[in-house]
Design a binder for these strands. Structure first.
Length: 706
DNA sequence: CCTCAGACTTGGAACAATATTT
DNA sequence: AAATATTGTTCCAAGTCTGAGG
């Protein structure tokens, strides 16, 4: 192995690195057997202790309330030493063996083609009842074979992109009108009168008092500017500094408290009522099949909560009215009635080349749209999800070639080629996002193609340190050893430029993707993320799962999941209870240690002669033989060890978010197959909703490999 | 090409529901 | 039973990528 990419130092097991990839990125050759492994790895990121500097700092949104953890960029995770699985807590669930996976009915992979198919089988769970409910009667040709049919359609789109033939739904639901509370805020110490509209906006702000937004200058300015438009030029309120929203804030707290105090029945009544109101909006009928609608609730007005340093944070997101909304519905099907009397939809379309049911323009950014789509459990979404994974799997067949290809171009004379090669390498190896250009009026974040000179530091002899804010202003901090030509190339790209200049000045995502498409049809940068994630999960699960208890197996899954999350840089804010949680663990550990030491002392005594029988203390407590004591001690020691492991895991995972990869990057079939093979009830891994979303993957055989 | 409207996926936090502890 | 901790769900912001039209 020669120049390997990863430098993980030795170790194999808990080494800092996730994957020691031996395979090729480097020079081509290599045994192929290895190539399935993702290149991704984080060197320093996971490296030892020093790491406190390393990957941490989560950039929190200003919004998060919790007073606690105030420090936004607090320390965060440290190294990530992978520790053994160790089942931490113990709730032993009884182990229902037998994977009931199989039971799930056939996934409906219906081709989008024309006409409905007749399967009504719904995803895994429950609502069979609803779905059956007669919706649909049209029998049509059922084209199976989704994989193929899909591919073709996408590729050449004979019928172009027809997404459905018939579409029925009831439109969208509007939030209730504003109910004025009449609580007067103070201006310059005096109560002020506000119209309901003015009060509404004041309340939006007042209520955010304990979020970080409330103290951000941009937020305040934007809010105040928009609010003053509503107050009018002549209103007494002129200066933000003289505003005191406390009264309204306190009213809000009281409301919250009241709500909490409601009895269970009251709450239930409320829920039922809500359910009743929403009922009709919950479902759409697509090609005769009843499907859940994703987000039929129109977003209520509020103050925009942009993430990171968003220039528009605090702006008023005005109320959306029917007249803002465009409805998409099957031709000939009844148009949803506009729920607000006297008003009407902006437009009604019958476009079956798209999947949205409705949309409106984002009031903050006129050019953006807010769509109402079907839920993730719908077959339309399921199908494209499946296609996404199939495409990622296809990448397996091309990856060797792609790597050879870009490796060759590392030294290309053609600057564009060279930059594309290096960018592709980063996308492949680090699973970076493509990095589209962004507008001035958005938070300043970057991805691969938009990396700035200041985001990359060359550390001789051949390491690169990345430090930038990516999507959602989440910080990406990672130091990686790269192939020498890459290192040299990056150095050259940065030479003589300013901090804020693009590293890849010659390329953008369009060019990058255009190039990728030449290497494999349909290939784009994001496919590498999916590929990387799924390949990693598949490899880890298959390599590491051995016989063990259910808990142990689940722990292995979590570990693999976590590995993927780290590769994708999926982070979360540390929970406000984290510290106390740690403290509690430490306490318990100390307690055990005390116990252990006590026993040790006793053991000494016991060994020193005294036989179990004799001793002055006539106490009833029976003496233990040395062996018994030793047993006890080792028992406690094992316990301690277990707790230390949990503690370390907790600490190491406090900034890692597992959900995102589970939902978006890991081919569910890997999980399903693994569960079947190892007799793990799938619901130990997938929650109900996610199970519904992955209905299409449930009947895969235990032999499935990504 | 390039722009830019458009459509759809991905993302973390807020919030709600449950489970566990006190 | 109340208080907490944990897990699951919803919300809506922020990405990616495509395609039409110049």
């Amino acid at each position: 192995m020669a120049p390997t990419v990863c430098l993980s130092d030795g170790d194999d097991e808990d080494g800092p690195i996730s994957f020691k990839r031996t395979a090729s990125v480097k020079s081509e050759q290599e045994d192929d057997s290895e190539d399935e492994k993702p290149l991704a790895m984080r060197t320093t990121r996971l490296t030892s202790n020093a790491s406190s500097t390393s990957r941490n700092s989560i950039k929190r949104r200003p919004g998060d309330s919790n007073t606690g953890t105030s420090s936004p960029l607090k320390k965060a995770k440290h190294s990530a030493i992978e520790r053994e699985p160790k089942a931490a807590d113990a709730h032993d669930n009884k182990i229902p063996l037998a994977p009931r996976l199989t039971s799930v009915k056939p996934s409906k992979t219906k081709p989008p083609a024309k006409n409905a198919t007749k399967n009504k089988k719904k995803s895994p769970s429950s609502f069979t009842k609803d779905s059956q409910k007669g919706v649909e009667m049209k029998a049509k040709k059922t084209v199976r074979n989704s994989r193929l049919s899909k591919a073709m359609k996408v590729r050449q789109g004979s019928g172009s992109g027809k997404k459905w033939s018939t579409l029925e739904h009831n439109g969208v639901m509007f939030p209730p009108p504003y109910m004025p509370h009449g609580v007067k805020m103070l201006y310059n110490g005096q109560p002020v009168d506000l119209t309901p509209e003015q009060e509404e906006v004041a309340t939006m702000f007042a209520v955010m008092r304990d979020t970080e937004y409330a103290s951000k200058e941009t937020f305040i300015n934007n809010f105040f500017t928009d609010w003053r438009k509503i107050l009018g030029k002549t209103h007494i309120i002129k200066k933000f500094e003289l505003c005191d929203f406390t009264t309204i804030y306190e009213w809000h707290l009281r409301e919250k408290e009241n709500k909490k105090q409601m009895t269970t029945e009251e709450k239930k009544a409320l829920r039922d009522e809500k359910g009743k109101r929403e009922e009709k909006y919950l479902w759409a009928i697509v090609d005769g099949v009843k499907e859940k609608v994703g987000n039929f609730r129109v977003e209520p007005p509020g103050l925009f909560r942009g993430r990171g340093e968003h220039p528009k944070m605090g702006r008023l997101k005005r109320r959306i009215r029917p007249n803002d909304i465009t409805i998409n519905i099957g031709k000939g099907t009844p148009v949803p009635v506009c729920p607000i009397p006297g008003e009407s939809w902006k437009e009604v379309k019958h476009d079956n080349t798209v999947t949205w049911l409705a949309f409106w323009n984002d009031p903050i950014n006129q050019k953006d749209f807010k769509y109402v789509f079907l839920a993730a459990s719908s077959s339309l979404k399921g199908q494209s999800d499946k296609e996404k994974y199939e495409k990622a799997r296809k990448l397996k067949d091309h990856i060797d070639n792609i790597r050879v290809n870009y490796t060759k171009d590392f030294r290309s004379k053609d600057q564009v080629k060279k930059q594309i090669a290096v960018a592709t390498y980063l996308v492949d190896k680090l699973a970076l996002r493509a990095g589209n250009e962004k507008d001035e009026d958005e938070a300043d974040t970057v991805g691969c193609c938009t990396l700035k000179v200041e985001n990359v530091t060359c550390l001789p002899p051949n390491k690169l340190q990345f430090d930038f804010l990516g999507k959602d202003s989440i910080r990406y901090l990672n130091t990686v050893e790269v192939e020498l030509p890459v290192y040299e190339a990056v150095k050259e790209f940065c030479a003589g430029k300013n901090k804020g200049d693009n590293v890849f000045a010659e390329i953008d995502t369009i060019k990058l993707n255009a190039h990728l498409k030449e290497l494999m049809p349909g290939l784009t940068a994001k496919v590498f993320r999916t590929y990387n994630a799924s390949v990693t999960l598949d490899a880890m699960l298959n390599k590491e799962t051995e016989d063990g208890t259910l808990l142990q197996k689940i722990s292995i899954y979590k570990r693999a999941n976590k590995e993927v999350a780290i590769i994708c840089n999926h982070q979360r804010a540390v929970s406000k209870s984290h510290d106390s949680q740690m403290a509690k663990l430490n306490e318990k550990i100390d307690e055990l240690k005390v116990q252990r030491d006590g026993l040790k002392a006793e053991l000494e005594k016991a060994k020193k002669g005294k036989r179990p029988g004799d001793d002055k203390d006539g106490s009833r407590k029976k003496k233990l033989t040395p062996e018994m004591l030793e047993n006890k001690i080792s028992g406690i020691e094992a316990k301690i060890e277990g707790m230390v492991i949990t503690k370390n895991n907790t600490e190491e995972s406090k900034t890692v978010a597992l959900g995102t990869s589970k939902i978006n990057y890991l081919d569910p079939r890997i999980t399903v197959a693994w569960c079947k093979t190892h007799e793990i009830p799938i619901n130990k891994i997938f929650s109900k909703t996610i199970l519904e979303k992955f209905g299409w993957a449930m009947d895969v055989g235990p032999g499935f490999r990504f």
